[in-house]
Design a binder for these strands. Structure first.
Lengths: 338, 338
DNA sequence: TTGAAAGCGCTAACAG
DNA sequence: CTGTTAGCGCTTTCAA
């Protein structure tokens, strides 16, 4: 191990490599970051330097590199939770697409907490990300403003903002299609003309749109929807569970079919159905605006809608790759797992 | 907006703040990073500087800061997948505990691909992480070696290595307890003396230990386990599904109870059970070495074991916070959701 | 109490 | 084809 030229505790630098290879630091740098063709460095030298770097286990210092260049090649993403397949697949796909472009993805989870979101955004900016994606953010515009102040690009995913371009699902169309399927599946078990129940979701754009799609499908079917049928309780399972109990206490028998906004409130819905025994041996038909393969194969009475994550990320990176555009919303159609 | 002192396209620096506040860059720096008490800077000046920094939306450049200091305050984690609650909760907890310590967590998902793991480890080292956690890595020791060569601390989580300290679940004890429960639950439906089926898992330490615990529980119950009952097929649902089909084709009727290594192969198991109709109206008893709250509430015949993620991360950070210790394995007991 | 100056490791402009 | 030099934004001696 020829480490004479390197101080003991410290990491190897291009200067160490330069003395070791008898070349200049510049040559080493350019060989190591691929700009050496342009500098017409001899292949022999390039090979020698690469070999020595390998032997010595040299690792580039990106902090130094990033400080010097204008771009950091860091791309950040803020995501609310890792507790479901939807956000999980978004992050997996995001990371792989970012890496394919030579970007280093840094993802952080903000627990649906707007203060944490802001903190995380500031931290990412401090680390010099070139671009920040706010996924399902509670206050996307605030994040956009903070980014803009620092000259950082930002984009929204899953939930739209007014100040930056957004890629989201076609929530209204998807909810309409899902509602139609639930209505059809439950036709034999529902009192004719009876609407579905809507459960879960916080008062954001997506929930508003989904409720609109829910209403559209009902009115297309000639069914009136009473406001008491809409339980937009947030995402916590316990809240959905409690809301169902309260509604049943007030109204008596609940509809034999419901629209649930995601797998998270679904947990509370199932829990209540089992615990209350409200439906006896005839479990209600459920449509879920979310998809989980295990849940899907485990159950017979749950129709799951799948958001097109690859499609959404395709659109997202199309925007990232191109020039910054002004705020607009791209809606990606949803799917059913057939 | 007093931005005269700042070049148009560029980000604000401590020098801009210095001219703006009439103080020196040193003063600004020390005020902004909290070392100013030690430098006995006047409270008035400190307040003025902080105010101006706020007004200007100044954001510290961590690349520059990290380059200058010896510690980056970055902590990295490599995780195999985001497709289940176990790794999801590990990452959520890791991020929050890291932030509590003033560290910036960078997490990346490597798809159970050993090449990607190595690449990701190198990338994190290049970004100067102070410490790297390899979670469920296919080749933890390789990662430890790479880290060691760069002078970076590393720790293993979920799967142990020989070269760095590891925090894992008590797989053997957990599997034993789970097996006991499945045996008890299925006592009425199993042919007396008939063993359970073991499904899923790749040939790593955890699977070996779980199979051992599975065998322990059987022999404690006086039941012999034939090797054909062990289907360590890997984690893909399709593989578990196929293996069950093949075993049924060869052996005829399968045991009325099985041990499944996680929710991922469980999907394939359920799919096969439903598609084949092998068990008719009497679905098999299942124990799953993994926990998912929605699955747990949806099913009656599945016993789920929960790994103690908070407990594991507690142990992990205990090691991170203390001095680097030599390689040893800490096993954290598993739980059942009561 | 405060400031000037050096330098972290790298890249880019400018000379050869 | 290759090397010298300056400087990215920050922290840290050292000097006042």
């Amino acid at each position: 191990m020829a480490k004479e030229s390197k101080a003991p505790g410290r990491r190897m630098t291009i200067y160490d490599l330069a003395t070791l290879s008898g070349a200049s630091p510049t040559a080493v740098s350019s060989v190591l970051n691929g700009t050496w063709k342009k500098r017409r460095i001899s292949v022999a030298l390039a090979e020698r330097i690469t070999r020595i770097a390998d032997e010595q286990g040299y690792a580039l210092n990106m902090q130094a590199s990033g400080l010097r260049r204008d771009k950091s090649h860091l791309i950040g993403m803020i995501v609310p939770k890792y507790d479901n397949r939807y956000f999980g697949s978004i992050v997996e796909k995001f990371e792989s697409m970012a890496r394919d472009r030579g970007l280093f993805p840094i993802v952080t989870c903000t627990q649906r907490d707007s203060e944490l979101e802001i903190q995380a955004a500031r931290a990412m900016i401090a680390h010099q990300v070139d671009c920040l994606i706010a996924t399902g953010a509670t206050d996307p515009d605030r994040i956009t403003e903070i980014c803009a102040a620092a000259g950082v690009r930002s984009l929204n995913l899953d939930l739209p903002g007014r100040l930056a371009p957004s890629v989201i699902s076609d929530n209204r169309g998807g909810a309409n299609a899902l509602t139609q399927r639930i209505l059809a599946a439950s036709a034999g078990d529902r009192v004719p003309g009876q609407p579905l129940l809507y459960v879960g979701g916080r008062p954001d754009h997506n929930t508003t749109e989904r409720i609109q799609g829910f209403r559209d499908a009902h009115s297309e079917a000639g069914i009136a929807v009473d406001d008491t049928m809409i339980l937009a309780t947030g995402y916590a399972p316990e809240k959905a569970e409690r809301a169902l109990g309260e509604l049943a206490a007030k109204h008596g028998k609940l509809p034999a079919a419901m629209f649930v906004s995601s797998t998270i409130p679904l947990e509370g819905v199932i829990r209540w159905i089992k615990a209350s025994g409200h439906f006896g041996d005839c479990p209600p038909h459920i449509g879920c605006f979310d998809w989980d393969p295990l849940v899907s194969v485990l159950t017979e009475n749950i129709i799951m809608l799948r958001q097109d994550v690859p499609g959404m990320l395709q659109e997202l990176f199309k925007m990232i790759d191109s020039e910054p555009a002004d705020a607009r919303v791209i809606e990606v159609p949803t799917l059913f797992q057939e």
